[in-house]
Computed example of a mutant assay.
Amino acid sequence: MEIKIQNIDTIRESAREFIQNIGERKVFAFYGKMGAGKTTFVKAICEELGVEDVITSPTFAIVNEYEAHDQSIFHFDFYRIKRLEEVYDMGYEDYFYSGALCFIEWPELIEDLLPEDAVKVTITENTDGTRTVTF
């Protein structure tokens, strides 16, 4: 599947299209260069799912938990992870296998720990400033 994000003003439309196509899948690994828009897209997805909390990058906290319509959503950012032991210590299995939606940024740093059914989502910045989301 491929979704085009034309600009920041249309990102919520792209997030709705993403949500319509995730099916029953729960764990999503977001790949993309620094500045590609991973956090911005995850924020738009969470807003479209009904999260009313302030949605921020969990860069320093590693994981943020949000609630939307009686469901938990976990947003991870593993950019600052130095060793896999840090991920073991945080109890990653409790999150990844909880049945809650999990949105993971910088999954390449923990690929060995991702569930087999994790969906690889790639965000690419195009030369015209648009973004392409593939999964």
Score class of each variant (00 low, 15 high):
Ile123Cys: 05
Ile62Asn: 04
Gly35Ala: 13
Glu85Thr: 13
Val63Phe: 07
Ala100Val: 01
Asp94Ser: 12
Asn64Ile: 01
Ser98Gly: 04
Thr39Trp: 03
Thr122Met: 11
Asn7Lys: 05
Ser14Gln: 07
Ile45Val: 14
Phe76Lys: 03
Ile110Pro: 01
Ser14Phe: 06
Val133Tyr: 03
Ala44Asp: 03
Phe60Asp: 12
Gln20Leu: 13
Ile81Pro: 00
Phe18Tyr: 15
Tyr88Cys: 06
Asp94Tyr: 12
Gly35Ser: 13
Phe78Ile: 02
His69Val: 06
Ile19His: 11
Ala100Tyr: 08
Thr122Cys: 09
Thr122Val: 13
Glu86Met: 05
Arg25Asp: 08
Pro115Asn: 04
Val63Asn: 05
Gln71Tyr: 14
Arg80Cys: 06
Ile73Phe: 06
Val119Thr: 08
Ile19Glu: 08
Ser57Phe: 07
Thr127Ala: 15
Lys26Thr: 04
Leu109Thr: 02
Glu85Phe: 07
Tyr92Ile: 09
Thr134Met: 07
Ser98Leu: 02
Arg131Cys: 07
Thr134Ser: 14
Ile104Gly: 00
Ile3His: 08
Lys33Val: 10
Glu116Cys: 00
Arg12Pro: 05
Arg12His: 14
Ala68Ile: 07
Ser98Lys: 02
Glu125Gln: 12
Asp117Lys: 08
Lys82Pro: 00
Phe30Pro: 05
Val27Ser: 00
Ala44Ser: 14
Ile3Arg: 10
Asp94Asn: 14
Gln6Pro: 05
Tyr95Leu: 01
Glu2Arg: 15
Glu93Asn: 11
Thr39Tyr: 02
Phe30Met: 10
Glu86Leu: 04
Pro107Tyr: 05
Val54Gly: 12
Ala29His: 02
Gly50Ala: 07
Thr40Arg: 09
Leu114Thr: 03
Asn126Leu: 15
Tyr97Met: 01
Ala100Asp: 02
Ala36Gly: 02
Asp128Phe: 10
Leu49Arg: 12
Ile55Cys: 08
Thr40Pro: 00
Ile19Tyr: 11
Glu86Thr: 04
Thr10Pro: 06
Tyr31Pro: 00
Gly35Cys: 10
Phe18Cys: 10
Asp94Ile: 01
Tyr79Trp: 09
Gly99Trp: 07
Lys4Thr: 13
Asp70Phe: 12
Trp106Glu: 04
Lys4Phe: 14
Leu114Gln: 04
Asn126Thr: 12
Tyr92Met: 04
Asn21Gln: 13
Ile3Tyr: 11
His75Arg: 03
Tyr79Asp: 06
Gly37Leu: 08
Leu101Ala: 06
Asp53Gly: 12
Ala100Glu: 03
Tyr31Ser: 00
Asp53Ile: 08
Gly91Ser: 05
Arg25Trp: 06
Pro115Thr: 01
Gly32Thr: 03
Arg25Met: 11
Ile3Val: 13
Glu52Phe: 14
Leu84Ala: 11
Glu65Pro: 04
Thr39Lys: 04
Lys120Trp: 03
Leu49Ala: 08
Ser14Ala: 15
Val51Phe: 11
Glu65His: 12
Arg16His: 13
Gly32Glu: 09
Gly99Tyr: 10
Lys43Ile: 00
Ala15Lys: 02
Lys43Arg: 14
Phe41Glu: 05
Phe103His: 02
Thr124Tyr: 10
Val133Pro: 00
Ile5Cys: 09
Glu47Ile: 07
Ile62His: 09
Ile22Gln: 07
Phe41His: 09
His75Asp: 00
Tyr95Met: 03
Glu52Val: 14
Thr10Met: 10
Glu52Arg: 15
Glu93His: 11
Gln6Asn: 14
Phe60Ala: 13
Glu2Asn: 14
Thr10Leu: 14
Lys82Asp: 12
Glu86Phe: 05
